[in-house]
Write a protein that binds this DNA or RNA. Structure first.
Length: 788
DNA sequence: GAGTTTGAAACT
DNA sequence: CAGTTTCAAACTC
């Protein structure tokens, strides 16, 4: 059935596509070299639309789904129409119809192809397909269907068709996209099931991989980068497997890398495949996707599988949302959430209107899923807990995040591999190092090429990046930077907990939603992938007490849609501490003060005494003075600031580059960048949360996410000028006053702030620049969710 | 590196 | 909600 119907469907679908604007759009892209063209287009979509208001976990879990939808939409927009009827077949046909889509799908479907490809390298190579996209797609589809897909797809298809719930949900959500996703999800599920027993994993992986790639990189560019990176890494790491693959399709791989996310996906598949052999390679992939299960069949597979099944069920229940994303995020450990969130945001922003419309509930559900630590491969996977997700998510999304993720993944994997040996901390170092280095190199390559900065970023990867920026201001900052460079606080924050077992907010790592890593000198640490259950349970408890416990502490006015030209936007870093500080002796001039630490001024919500916060006093009087101070600090820290900037630089540059083109929605990432660049910006800890929220958050995920965010943000600020960033932050902080109350604390999370999408637009504008105060993670989502 | 200070987090 | 204790980071020496 599959093949014949597919063919027919393909024809019908094609006609539909032609009619659809999407189709036109794709055509414009150019089918032949669809990959690249598509890729860009996708990236565009993601970028342009990327803004996700959603950041908040609770409020709009849908963001996830949406994100995926969006991603897929962007990717498979063409296919959507057809999917409604018969997801599997249509999708394939659609793919065939549209070279790009076909490629993507092919990649996804590749599983079959892989099996085939394994035997037949030519077929495997996604790149090849792309070349002859039109013809091959169908063939590939048919092929895929025949071998493995046939078995799986039929079921999925039938289910999709039969299952009213699924179909309904999909239809409700978004007929085309959702349906397609649902199908994919189903397939994924099936695949996952099969994976356990068989090698079909590839298919699912591919599909997921494609999605992930797309999703992972809200911004096409980022996605590309990520893909490329992983590929590169893979090449580097999984020499053996890669070599094999490469032999088969060196050209293809290269093409894929260069070309499209889609192609990349295909490449990833291969990579993944390889990765199974080489854990590192897998990790790389993991960065982008949730390759963990696949890549780490050994230790983690069982776990991942279990998770996958559960997740799958969840997805199905939710509305066929893609579990792959969740997995991915989870696997990434700490940061995943953020990434997912960011993705969601991006997607929502981009597609907010219709497609995104996905049910908020779904989003929440997805969030929940994410939050819940998937057992998947104990590996690092979900390091992050639910609440954390938000912060992290924002950060994670960035390219940096991806890098971080890689690190994390490695660490996690190693951890898995390694018996808990280090209860206190994982020693990602070994694994991380390579990754980090690779990531760093990549960053360097991509961005400005600030080697040092990049390295630092990579090391700090996680939230630290921001911290570094902040650090610059203070003497310690300098120290930290110096240290960090070597330390790489890297991937994650480091804690030194002795009594809390790293299961309380006392623990920076835990509070940041990150698993403890080697650098940590904690004792009796339970904040490790091995203890996911415990970690999750603890987080839940904490969240039950304080839903915002893991929310970013610093909320910043996002430029939600900062006007590129407006410097004002740049200047104000209207960021506020969520709850405000309670300093009595530090005068808010030391890191003891969370506001100061977060690089934000004190606000009304603060109960500090003798506030002298350089970033902005409670009374707000100091703003000017603060700016001056900040400037001074900057000057002082210049070297550092420069470094930071340099580090940031790449991102910034990217932002600039990207931004100009896309009006990207402001993503948390943007903020993150700001933070990073911000000389004054706070430093370490706050950064974590702040990163996410503020933008510094990006730190986590490392360059990748940051980059994306930047792109997404398209903030004029960053793009326009580096200084502006710092300026922006400062001013924002100062401005923050306006928002502080509302922005920060109100933050209760998500919903409150979110509620008023206006807030984003409306509120922010209120302040001077019109920036909106947004929770780092939450930022945009309000607008999105409110819709519903 | 040890000790002190500080303020958030947790507890009552 | 307020007060107290616990905790770990920030800071000092």
């Amino acid at each position: 059935m599959d093949t014949p119907e597919r063919n027919q469907i393909g024809a019908t679908s094609v006609s539909k596509f032609e009619d659809s604007p999407v189709f036109n759009y794709i055509n414009n892209l150019s089918p032949i070299q669809p990959v690249k063209s598509i890729h860009t287009s996708q990236t565009f979509n993601s970028l342009s639309f990327a803004s996700l208001p959603s950041v908040f976990t609770s409020p709009h879990a849908s963001s996830y789904k949406e994100s995926r939808f969006l991603r897929r939409h962007s990717i498979s927009d063409l296919s959507k129409p057809d999917f409604s009827t018969e997801d599997g077949s249509k999708v394939e046909t659609d793919r065939g119809a549209t070279g790009n889509v076909a490629e993507l799908q092919d990649d996804s479907s590749a599983p079959d192809g892989k099996s085939d490809s394994l035997s037949n390298p030519s077929t495997e190579l996604p790149s090849e397909r792309p070349v002859s996209t039109n013809e091959e797609p169908q063939a590939s589809k048919s092929d895929s269907s025949h071998p493995d897909c046939d078995q799986k797809l039929p079921d999925s298809v039938l289910k999709s068709g039969e299952d009213p719930a699924l179909s309904d949900s999909c239809v409700k959500n978004k007929s085309g996209n959702e349906s397609s996703e649902a199908e994919e999800n189903k397939q994924v599920i099936n695949h996952t099931e099969e994976r356990e027993g068989t090698g079909y994993d590839w298919e699912s992986l591919i599909t997921e991989g494609a999605d992930l790639l797309i999703f992972s990189s809200p911004n096409g560019s980022e996605a590309i980068r990520l893909v490329q990176k992983p590929l590169d890494l893979v090449t580097g790491f999984a020499s053996s497997t890669l070599s094999q693959i490469m032999e088969n399709d060196n050209a293809n791989l290269s093409k894929m890398r260069i070309a499209d996310p889609i192609e990349c996906s295909g490449g990833q598949h291969e990579i993944e495949f390889l990765s199974s052999q080489a854990g590192e390679a897998c990790e790389l992939k993991d960065m982008d996707q949730g390759m963990d299960s696949l890549s780490f069949p050994n230790s983690s597979n069982s776990v991942s599988r279990e998770i996958t099944d559960d997740e799958v069920a969840r997805y199905i229940a939710d509305d066929c949302k893609p579990a792959s994303n969740l997995y991915r995020g989870m696997r990434r450990r700490c940061l995943d959430f953020e990434a997912a969130v960011s993705r969601r945001k991006n997607l929502e922003d981009t597609s907010n209107g219709g497609s995104v419309s996905t049910h908020p509930e779904e989003k929440t559900a997805s969030m929940d899923k994410q939050l819940v630590p998937y057992k998947s491969g104990g590996v690092a996977t979900r390091c992050v807990l639910t609440g954390i997700g938000l912060h992290l998510n924002a950060l994670a999304t960035t390219s940096k995040d991806a890098k971080n993720l890689n690190h994390e993944k490695f660490s996690s994997e190693r951890q898995l591999n390694l018996p808990n040996s280090s209860a206190s901390c994982h020693s990602p170092s070994g694994g991380l190092d390579p990754l980090l280095t690779s990531a760093v190199t990549e960053r360097d390559m991509d961005p400005s090429g600030n080697g040092v900065q990049n390295e630092e970023d990579g090391a700090r990867a996680s939230a630290y990046v921001l911290a570094e920026d902040f650090n610059q201001n203070s003497p310690k900052k300098k120290r930290r930077r110096l240290e960090p460079a070597g330390e790489t606080e890297s991937s994650c924050k480091r804690c030194n907990c002795k009594k809390s077992k790293c299961l309380k907010l006392y623990c920076e790592c835990f509070a940041a939603g990150v698993y403890c890593i080697e650098p940590c000198s904690c004792q009796d640490c339970f904040n490790k992938p091995i203890h996911e259950d415990t970690v999750l349970a603890t987080r839940k408890q904490i969240e039950s007490r304080n839903p915002l416990a893991f929310a970013p502490k610093v909320i910043r006015n996002s430029d939600s849609l900062p006007e590129p030209g407006d410097e004002s936007n740049k200047t104000p870093a209207s960021a506020r501490h969520k709850r405000g500080c309670n300093c009595k002796k530090s005068s808010c001039l030391k890191k003891y003060c969370e506001c100061y630490q977060g690089g934000v001024g004190c606000s009304i919500s603060c109960r500090c005494e003798g506030c002298k916060n350089a970033f902005g006093r409670k009374d707000g009087s100091s703003i000017l003075g603060l700016e001056a101070e900040l400037e001074e600090e900057e000057t002082e820290t210049n070297p550092k600031s420069v470094m930071d900037k340099g580090l940031q630089g790449p991102e910034i540059q990217n932002n600039e580059e990207q931004n100009p083109g896309s009006a990207i929605p402001s993503t948390p990432l943007q903020l993150s960048r700001q933070l990073v660049p911000l000389p004054f910006s706070s430093r370490s800890k706050p950064l974590r949360s702040s990163f996410l929220n503020v933008g510094s958050s990006s730190g986590f995920y490392g360059g990748h996410k940051l980059e994306k965010p930047n792109i997404l943000r398209a903030q004029p600020d960053l793009g326009i000028n580096t200084k502006p960033v710092s300026e922006d932050e400062m001013p924002d902080i100062l401005r923050g006053e306006c928002s502080p109350g509302a922005g920060v604390k109100t933050g209760s999370p998500n919903s409150k702030r979110i509620s008023p999408p206006q807030s984003d637009f409306g509120l922010s504008p209120l302040p001077r620049t019109g920036r909106k105060l947004i929770l780092q993670s939450i930022p945009s989502f309000p607008s999105l969710t409110p819709q519903h």
